[in-house]
Design a binder for these strands. Sequence first.
RNA 1: GGAGAGGUUCCCGAGUGGUCAAAGGGAACAGACUGUAAAUCUGUCGGCAGCGCCUUCGGAGGUUCAAAUCCUCCCCUCUCCA
Length: 427
Amino acid sequence: MSHDVYQELGERGLIYQSTDADGLRSLLQKSPQTFYIGFDPTADSLHVGSLIPIIVMMHLQKAGHRPIAILGGGTAMVGDPSGKTEMRLMLTPAKIVENGKGIAAQLARFLDFNDDKCRLINNADWLSELKYVDFLRDIGRHFSVNRMLTAESYKQRLETGLSFIEFNYMLLQAYDFHVLCKEQNCRIQMGGQDQWGNIVAGIDLIRRTQSLDAYGITFPLLTTSNGEKFGKTAGGAVWLAAERTSVLDFYQFWRNCEDSELEKLLNFFTFLPVSEIKYLAQLQESGINRAKEILAYEVTALVHGQEAAATAYKTAVSRFGSADPELKIETSSKVRDISLQAAEENLPSLELDQAELETGMTLVDLFIKTGLVKSKGQTRRLIEQGGAYLNDVRIGKDRPITPNDFKENIITLRAGKKRYFQVRLPH
RNA sequence: GGAGAGGUUCCCGAGUGGUCAAAGGGAACAGACUGUAAAUCUGUCGGCAGCGCCUUCGGAGGUUCAAAUCCUCCCCUCUCCA
C-alpha cells in the first residue's frame, strides 16, 4: 500500500488522539485493514456532525481498507453518557430500526458497499441476545470499576449522577469491538474525541480476551470559534437529508463559515490536496470568499452530488455575486468549470394552489407557510424590523397577497439577508 | 428505608401571594457596519385579530378576590446517612 493514509489524516488534522501511532501507521501501510466507527441511530438522518467519521471512512476505503459502520441499535437503548451532562432519552426499538434504515441509505452514498468493501452492522445483532450472567462472567470481570471511574466521561457525570445502565455503556462498546475483532478481524476503532475512553476499553478487552493488539483513533471535536456545537443554524441542526435541510441552505451553511475555521473545514471536509488548501486558506479579501465558495461547493457536491451543488452555487452567486468572477484563483475543484452564464435560480420552493390564494391569504400567512418563520408574532416582528422582503422589496406591513404579486407565477420571499423561499402557482 | 436540597420559559439561572409572560446571562432572530465572515452597536426574543385575551414555572388537586410563589398527594433528580 503506497499511500500513507495515516499521514494524510494527520496532516488534515483529523486525528486527535491515537494509540500506538507508529504501529498503527505501519499496520495501515502493510496490508488492508478492517476498521469500524459507530453511528448512533438517534435520528433518521445524519447531520454534519457525522460527516467527519464518514469522510475518514472514505479516506481509508480509498486507500484500500475496509470500513464497518456499526449502527448502535443495541447501545442506543442504553445511552452513551460520554460528552453529555444529562441522561439522554431512550428510544424505542422500532424507532431505532427505522432510523437505522435512513442512516444506512445515506451511508451508501459515500461508501462503496459492493463486494463486501464496506459493511453496515447493527450491534443489536449480538447485544440483544446477551445473557446477563454470562456477560458479567466473561466480559465484566475484565473491567475495573476503579479504572472506569477515572475515565473523563464518567468523572463528569459523577458530579450530576450516572445511572447504572449508562455506566455499562463502556462495557457494551468494548464488547462490540471484541466481537468485531473476533468475527471480522477488525483491529481498529475510530470515533469522536469523547469516545476515547470507550475505545481504549475495547482495546484492553481484546488484549485480555484474545491476546491481540488493537488500535484506536479519535477525531477532533468540531466546535465554532466560540466553542459551540458545530452544525447548528437558525433551523436547528444541518442535516444531510435534503428533505430536512435544503441543498441551498446546506451550501450556504458552509459558504457562511467563519474565516478562522476555513482551513480546518477544507481539510476536514474536502478531498482537495493539502497543499492546495494551504494556498486557499491564506488568501485575503475576496480570495477568502472564493475559498469559501470552493468549500461550500465541494462539501455540497460530496453530500448532494455535483449537479445539485452546481445549482446551489449558481443560485447563491446570482443572489450574492461571485467572489472570483474572473477565475483568477487556482483550484482543482470542479467548481471552476461551472459556467455562470446560465445562472439560474433554484431556491427552496413550494406550490400554492389557486384556491388557497383566493381565501385571502396575507403575507404573514404566506411566510409561515414557507417555514421561513414559525409564528405570526415572529413574522410581524420580522416585518417591523425590516427583515421581510417580497420579490426583493422590503415589506412595510402585512397585507393580502394579490395575483399582481406573482411574477411569472412566482413570488420570492426573503427573511433577513440570506434566507429565501419561492412560492409558485401551478400553471 | 431515613434526613436534607431541588425540579422555572431553547440552555444556564433569579424570583417565595398581587407591580410576573416572569430579572440577568447565553443561544437565536432582525437592523446598522462589513466580505453572504468575525467583532461591535441597536432592537426583538410564549401564542394570538397588538396595552386585551389565552397558554406556561415537574404532575394532579386545594386555599385565596389573586399562586411560579401557600397547603395536600404524586413523579423525578441530587447530597448525606442506613
